[in-house]
Design a protein around this nucleic acid. Structure first.
Length: 713
DNA sequence: CTGGGCATCT
DNA sequence: AGATGCC
């Protein structure tokens, strides 16, 4: 905001002289006088390291199957070679080629399917973990790139270097054949290059991976320079060569941060090259992009990047998706969602955190629009379902999530009209660290809560920078929302960390399962289920929105296809190497084991499901639960005491979807909490409880989590 | 004839 | 909720 508060990332005086056009200056690059705001040691350059693993997916597959090392290898996702090893590149293959083109160019190409990212993801986090053992400021960019702010590491090393006249560079120095003479001019970058070499060596010796590194004074430059010598090499950029590396970019698209859309808009302004952008009047740029974006673009064109390395920590969302040529039946959608959810729930469980939000995303086919226009709907995840995820009752969780997903699907797609989907994505977000905080019984003795009470370590991690840096960082936008998240992540990274490496089950979490195993003999006989299409489990069916039920029972589906598994085994594809955890096994809900699981789930979730009724005349949007009478306004019809009304911010529709036992639990919860929460029945529906409200009201009680059912609007 | 993730900003 | 951008 205030330019005077901004840290001066780029020491202009060091490179400006070599820069042809000094016009583009960062707003942060305030004139001299405002510099001595901080009287720290030096407002010196940061030292940023960018690490970029070579053809990452291919490397992982070559580790899993070493016989692939010597053959041209391509990683195939659908019809695309997303990456290939260097044997293949020698024969002219590049990233993101079509399979047909690739096979044409290289007939001996060996293909490995790469749609399941499990192994890549696991290896990716191992790399990030390893980097974090050097310094906490590690930011991921995709699965195969990491930024590190090694300023402190460098300065520490510099402080304990006796001979300040004997520095050298490891690896290449951009635009220098032999830059060691310059090493004493740039001792910190020189030390950075040594750290980079050590880090790369560690990645190689401990994980068997090679990669490139770039060492520079900001993220933009580090990233730009890291790719200048490939593969498995590293390059340092001296400030005096800034204009070189910026100037030799062939197009604006090469600038990280300038994507397809931005480049198009710039082109419309007549801005095509870096130089164009450097010379383009800021005013007009602001008119097109707004002030922040315009300023950012200007800075990028000047090689200026004041963005901090923001520790990534654990991901803020987990998602799983699949794309396909055509999907046009509700049954197929249902099955695909089941498949995606099964795998996603497993991952979520290993992560250990509890998701509070579920999102379903689709992409519709459109001749013109095929790439873009995804649509999504999201909803809160009822706590009892979230607990099933964290407690490991994955099949139960899936069974209960499918109806939620189908409900969201209905909001986007009218199943009465024809539709044509090309992608489905399921996503968990709003990930809560305090996993199974079940209060009804027992305090939260979980491992997490314990660590959460000692936030000391967090501060060490996230702001152990020099005073200059930390004050700068906290003045940046990122920290307000992100820092709490990443602090959490840093704290709880343990579970997250362990899970990504070994998949350890936390016994504390397991004991936290609140499901009081109520065994109720249950017979699943009803008149409807025997008409169900194949692959649709009756128990799942019962939980589905009524419209979906109708849809699935329509003659079109009942009469159609025996629907057996399709196994498209491509000719040239190497069979997957045998491994224990096949995450995306197309296990659907047809196996008897799973059916048993669902029965068990239903038994646990309800005590009175003697009979099942499906009311086809029920208005859309309500779900019939077995054994419960639900009135049309969504309120349960079981007797309620007069003082137990819905709080004003309860969405009846959401409430109606809850399993009966949870509905009862909620109602009794309200009876108890109402005096505490002081929710007037006249409360405006538009306003929901704030986070603070919830914390204050529900601290340590189940209400805290249950109240999250309510829609904010 | 187009991946399967992630993140941020609006 | 969508757009955009990164890999």
């Amino acid at each position: 905001m205030d330019s005077s508060d901004e840290e001066v990332e780029e020491d202009e005086t060091e490179w400006k002289s070599s820069f042809v056009d000094p016009a583009p200056l960062s707003p942060a690059a305030a004139p001299g006088p405002s510099l001595h705001k901080t009287s720290g040691p030096t407002p010196a350059h940061k030292v940023i390291l960018h690490l970029d693993l070579d053809c990452f997916y291919a490397q992982v597959e070559m580790i899993r199957n070493p016989t692939l090392r010597d053959v041209p290898l391509g990683i195939q996702q659908k019809n695309i070679i997303v990456t290939c090893n260097y044997v293949a590149r020698q024969q002219g293959l590049t990233k993101l080629m079509f399979v047909t083109d690739a096979m044409e160019k290289c007939p001996q190409l060996v293909l490995v399917k790469g749609e399941d990212l499990t192994h890549y993801r696991e290896m990716s986090y191992k790399v990030t973990e390893l980097l974090m053992s050097y310094c906490p400021l590690v930011e991921r960019l995709g699965f195969d790139e990491n930024f590190m702010d090694i300023t402190e590491l460098v300065d520490r090393r510099l402080a304990q270097t006796p001979d300040s006249n004997n520095f050298s560079f490891k690896g290449h120095v951009y635009n220098h054949l032999c830059a060691d003479v310059k090493a004493n001019e740039y001792p910190r970058l020189a030390l950075g290059s040594h750290i980079a070499a050590e880090v790369r060596e560690a990645i190689h010796s401990k994980l068997g991976l090679t990669g490139c590194a770039g060492i520079a004074t900001n993220k933009l430059l580090a990233k730009l320079v890291s790719g200048t010598f490939k593969p498995n090499q590293q390059t340092t950029l001296l400030p005096e060569n800034l204009s070189d590396i910026i100037g030799c970019l062939s197009s604006l698209r090469k600038v990280p941060g300038v994507g397809h859309q931005t480049a198009k808009r710039l082109q419309a302004l007549g801005v095509v090259s870096i130089q164009d952008l450097q010379l383009f009047p800021l005013n007009e740029l602001v008119r097109e992009f707004g002030s922040p974006s315009a300023q950012r673009l200007k800075n990028l064109a000047a090689g200026v990047d004041d963005s901090p390395v923001t520790p990534t920590g654990a991901p803020q969302s987990l998602s799983d998706e699949d794309s396909f040529k055509k999907m046009s039946s509700t049954k197929d959608v249902l099955e695909k969602i089941q498949e995606l959810l099964s795998s996603l729930v497993e991952r979520m469980n290993k992560d250990g955190r509890q998701p509070q939000t579920f999102r379903l995303t689709i992409r519709r086919y459109s001749a013109t629009n095929k790439w873009f226009s995804r649509e999504s709907r999201q909803c809160p995840i009822p706590n009892h379902i979230g607990q099933k995820i964290t407690s490991g009752s994955s099949d139960d969780a899936v069974v209960q999530l499918v109806p939620l997903a189908m409900k969201l699907f209905q909001k986007m797609v009218d199943s009465n009209t024809t539709f044509h989907l090309t992608l489905i994505n399921v996503c968990f977000s709003n990930l809560q660290t305090r996993g199974a905080a079940i209060s009804g019984k027992g305090s939260i003795t979980s491992f997490f809560t314990h660590s959460a009470t000692s936030p000391r370590k967090t501060q060490v991690c996230s702001s152990s920078q020099s005073q200059d840096d930390s004050s700068h960082i906290t003045s940046q936008k990122t920290v307000t929302t992100k820092s709490p998240q990443s602090s959490e992540a840093a704290l709880h990274g343990f579970k997250w960390k362990q899970s990504s490496v070994v998949a350890v089950e936390d016994p504390l979490l397991q004991t936290a399962d609140c499901s009081t195993a109520r065994s109720d003999p249950d017979e699943t006989n009803n008149a409807v289920t025997h008409q169900l299409p194949p692959n649709v489990d009756p128990e799942v069916f019962k939980l589905l929105p009524e419209d979906i039920q109708k849809e699935l029972l329509s003659p079109a589906y009942v009469n159609s296809l025996p629907s057996t598994s399709t196994s498209p085994s491509a000719p040239a594809v190497v069979p997957d190497v045998p491994h224990m955890t096949k995450n995306k096994s197309p296990h659907s809900f047809t196996s008897s084991k799973n059916i048993e699981d669902f029965k068990e789930a239903l038994n646990k979730s309800d005590l009175s499901d003697r009979e099942t009724t499906v009311d086809h005349h029920r208005p859309a949007g309500t779900i019939m639960f077995p054994g419960e009478n639900v009135m049309e306004d969504g309120r349960p019809s079981f007797p309620l005491s007069s003082d137990c009304e819905f709080p004003g911010n309860v969405d009846p529709e959401v409430f109606s979807e809850l399993p009966p036992d949870v509905q009862r639990e909620l109602m009794s919860e309200w009876k108890q909490q109402k005096p505490v929460l002081k929710i007037p029945s006249s409360r405006k529906p538009g306003r929901s409880l704030t986070t603070k409200d919830r914390k204050a009201a529900g601290k340590g009680s189940q209400a805290n989590s249950l109240l999250k059912y309510f829609k904010p609007s």
